[in-house]
Amino acid sequence: MQPITTASLTPAQQQAVRVLAQAAEQADGIEALSEQTLLNLDLPEQPGGRGVKHLLVESPSGMDAYAQVDGGSVELVVAPQRRQRGIGGALLDAALTEGRQVWAHGDLPAAQALARSRELRRVRDLWVMTAEPPTDPDEPAASEGLRVRTFTVGRDEDAWVELNALAFAHHPEQGRLTRADLEQREGQPWFDPEVFFLAEDVNTGELLGSLWVKIEGNSGHAVGEIYALGVHPQAQGRGVGTLLTAHAMAAFAARDLARIELYVEGENTPAIRTYRRAGFTRARADVQYARP
């Protein structure tokens, strides 16, 4: 089995991958591909772009397996009915000639076995932490020298991208976001600028922090996510994150949510301690594997 490698997908291939990912999620109880990987499906091939590569295993019955390489990171999925036939191993081998690490969402036993068979080691844990939605949050208090407003589409993109790059300079995914990535998310059904909070310096108007809230699902079953909280390195210690979090909790309390969640690096002990004090518990971990 030799995967087809391409820099862009046809609309039919994009849809086939989405159907494949949905079938795998239903079988495994966890998403097979990350949000960014799904957003990358319809990226056109363009000079200076993200440099995404797609690896496809197709048969007359449909899409048997798919892998994507983005920035050296690999994600892959195999159709439930086509597993245990060596397809996943062959696809992983091909993908790792292009990439360096592979993500396993939920770190399921099958993913662990595949990693062991290729002598890959665990190099990164990304925790998903969840909590009950707040019912009586504290009112966001005034903070000296700071003000909070919501994001304005068409005006704040460049300033936010600059802030995000500074706040996540050492983060391998979040720090890479471009204006095109932001605008792609603005086009998603869940995007709501009214829950995209920006903290500014009262005197200069400089953007010091942002907290992006993502809410998906129907009322009563919706999930609220602290999607991205970033603070300018020079504004650390001014209470920017605390102020923005208070606004997010007030927004969560105003919606009929089933739960709230966030992602945090498994080695970020101080942040995990803070989130646990706020009522969050570890629900699962997405794990990254790499060759020794």
Rank of each mutant, 00 (worst) to 15 (best):
T150N: 10
A167V: 09
G266V: 12
Q2I: 07
T281P: 00
A235W: 01
R118A: 07
D42A: 14
F252A: 03
N268I: 09
L257Q: 01
E98A: 14
A111W: 11
L56T: 04
H170W: 12
Q174Y: 08
L43Q: 13
L9I: 11
M249W: 11
P292R: 08
H170Q: 15
G175F: 04
A222M: 05
W212D: 00
I226F: 15
Q22S: 08
Q15M: 12
Q288V: 15
S61T: 15
Q112S: 06
R176Q: 15
M129Y: 01
Q174V: 06
F197A: 08
R276F: 10
W212E: 00
L198I: 04
A180T: 04
D93S: 14
D138Y: 01
G106V: 10
G224Q: 04
D192L: 05
N40R: 15
E216P: 00
D181F: 00
A12P: 00
D138S: 14
L20I: 07
W103A: 12
L92H: 02
E194M: 03
A251Y: 03
T10N: 05
R255K: 14
A228L: 12
L108P: 08
S210N: 08
G145H: 07
L229E: 10
A110R: 11
Q84L: 14
M249S: 05
A24C: 08
A250N: 14
L163K: 07
E194F: 00
G99Y: 11
P60T: 09
Q26H: 14
Q236V: 11
Y263P: 07
D201G: 01
Q36W: 12
R291H: 14
A222P: 00
L208F: 03
D70N: 10
N203K: 13
L120D: 05
L43N: 06
E162M: 12
S34I: 03
I260L: 12
L9G: 08
L9N: 05
Q174L: 08
V123Q: 07
S59G: 14
V19T: 14
W212Y: 12
L182K: 04
A228R: 02
H232D: 12
E162A: 15
L208V: 01
I4M: 13
G62L: 06
H54Q: 01
Q2M: 12
A278C: 03
A104K: 11
A258S: 14
G89C: 13
A251C: 02
L211E: 12
R255W: 02
Q68L: 15
V240S: 03
T281I: 10
H221F: 15
G220V: 03
L182R: 03
Y289D: 09
A141Y: 04
L243N: 07
F252M: 12
F252C: 09
A12Q: 15
W127T: 01
A113N: 05
P80G: 05
E267G: 13
L114N: 06
R50E: 11
L146M: 04
R83H: 06
Q22C: 02
A165P: 09
L163M: 07
R276E: 15
A159T: 01
R284I: 10
F196E: 01
F168K: 11
L38R: 03
L9R: 09
V17D: 06
R255T: 02
D107K: 13
W103V: 11
G49M: 02
V153Y: 00
E173H: 09
G89R: 14
Q2L: 11
V52R: 03
E225R: 12
G279Y: 08
D192C: 02
P270V: 12
L163G: 06
L146D: 10
I272D: 04
A21D: 03
A24T: 03
L229W: 06
F252Y: 11
A16P: 09
G175T: 07
